[in-house]
Write a protein that binds this DNA or RNA. Sequence first.
DNA 1: CTTGGATGCTAAATCGCTCTAGTTGCCGGA
DNA 2: TCCGGCAACTAGAGCGATTTAGCATCCAAG
Lengths: 343, 343
Amino acid sequence: MRRPTITDIAKQVGVSKGAVSFALNGRPGVGEATRARILQVAKEMNWRPHSAARALGGARAEAVGLVIARPASTLGVEPFFAQLLSGLQAGLSAQSVALHLLIVEDVEAEMEVYREWASAHRVDGFVMVDLKVRDPRIEVLEELGAPAVVLGGPGRHGSLSSVWADDREAMLSVVDYLAALGHRRIAHVAGLPAFRHTQRRTRALRDRAGRLDLEEAVSVPTDFSDAEGAAATRTLLSRARRPTAIVYDSDVMALAGLGVAGEMGVKVPDELSIVAFDDSVLTRIAHPAISALSRDTFAFGRQLAEVMLEVIAEPGLRRDVRTATPRLVVRESTAPPAAWQGD
Amino acid sequence: MRRPTITDIAKQVGVSKGAVSFALNGRPGVGEATRARILQVAKEMNWRPHSAARALGGARAEAVGLVIARPASTLGVEPFFAQLLSGLQAGLSAQSVALHLLIVEDVEAEMEVYREWASAHRVDGFVMVDLKVRDPRIEVLEELGAPAVVLGGPGRHGSLSSVWADDREAMLSVVDYLAALGHRRIAHVAGLPAFRHTQRRTRALRDRAGRLDLEEAVSVPTDFSDAEGAAATRTLLSRARRPTAIVYDSDVMALAGLGVAGEMGVKVPDELSIVAFDDSVLTRIAHPAISALSRDTFAFGRQLAEVMLEVIAEPGLRRDVRTATPRLVVRESTAPPAAWQGD
DNA sequence: CTTGGATGCTAAATCGCTCTAGTTGCCGGA
DNA sequence: TCCGGCAACTAGAGCGATTTAGCATCCAAG
């Protein structure tokens, strides 16, 4: 048995297709009695809209697209994305807008999907994550003229809207705190250098190190994996004068680093303080629990949704929203350095 | 400037729409020379297909749907899904079939999405995960007549195809190993009792406990969260005669349990052995590293894709594929119980 | 009694593509 | 020379919805 169409409903009720369309979309053009009968029959026949047909007509797709180009192994462990997705979806579904998520191999594929979805009216707008230094996706989205919101900033995202947290500010607060505890040799196990936020964090550390006159402040780039996080930690702790504090760009790497410290007999927090960018179950589960920069990622996703809906409603609008700066939650992994005896 | 359509191409080349359609889809009906010219112009105009229009005509959507009804907090930490997705996508994209992923609040919403996507021809088939005891989704999918593959089994999924790993066999291997080490009191921190696989694991433990004449073998249900995993562990370890081994239904809960053991001064593995169902970075990162039931989740996803494509190609076909049983990888968290002195 | 404007509805065009049923032109065979 | 057959291509219907133009009908005001 075929799926019912508005034509079937029209026949059944004895009115025209147009009338049915008006009734089902709650717009004027039909009387109350007819409208009620149409809705009744539609329900009985278990009718539901054919989104492809709607899209053809040029109507709203009532969906936004999110394409992520990342190896799944990275994606899996980071609670950040799941939380973000959850918030995003909550915000969108309030206006019954769906979220179309696709995970692809690389940025090339990601841009191709943008083009396809845009030209097929599959979505009304895009959310772009993992802003890179000189990001080619910006240009594609601008060219397509599709509403888009970039997660990340500030700046460097052309004419697109953005929602961002201040990574620089967050990093400064961590460095200040560690310096106040007495740390003079601080290392930073960073993420992919191609990411804008990695760059901002790295630069923040360097800037502040100069101002505070720290003895050492290195950033070691990694690919965000636990393996490279562990390797970087091993290298750092093998030095003659090893750092007394390490800041990790993700919770997974922090956990891996904690493991390496244990394996090398370096006591946390007595001989080494550890701080993680991004908070999650992992930092709380660990022993000792890891001090982390925490933020309400769910709320972040919600804000993203809000901005997205605004931009869709009013194309051409450009919004730049700065969200709350992640705040340092101190747990058991940070303490004054062992050798600290005043300045 | 409007997006180019086949009509534009037809005009430009000087042929009919039909010819263009034939050429672009690589089917007979046009000469080689014309075909080449059409493809050339299509490329120049940067044309790409409008999937909605295709779907309207009743053609393949070249996409499969995966809807997950889970709180994002659970989703985020478990690497299982990301790995699975990755494998699934790899398998599908080999035939350039896309994957449409949606995360929803509950099973009701999930079924609604099934109906919508099916009636809108948005996907050619569905992958269903998290098979429940008496699962209402089975009926919906059968009624829709859409090709579908269930992850989980064996049995209890009506006329739908399935891909599954033998949870029972896996649990038995763990229990046998622990018993061989000398453990007589084994606990099981289980997942949601509504899940089929939770049920199978629980039953396997109970069955084997009888056969091996164990002193104790309890299963404690949880919601898969680290919080409940920790709470269950606390309760178990607070008993007068506490278990000497605990099997956790997920890696996250195992990690949480390990934390609780540390906090209560129970030494792992000397006083307590820990085993995790599902392997990942987390079990390797932990200290001591956690013994876990490991499987190639990526390959699992790939197999899922294969079966999905087969079922789409030949509707009505029913396949039941049993994949490799997860194998126990022994790490540092398992050992003979401290008090063990022969029988 | 006529006119004007709502109101309630219909008919048909439209969106981009696929696919079937022709139509045309050319080649080879009798 | 004529015809059958095939390859190459065209015309146009159809997919399920939206949307616009237009047509009755009815009521109120002049």
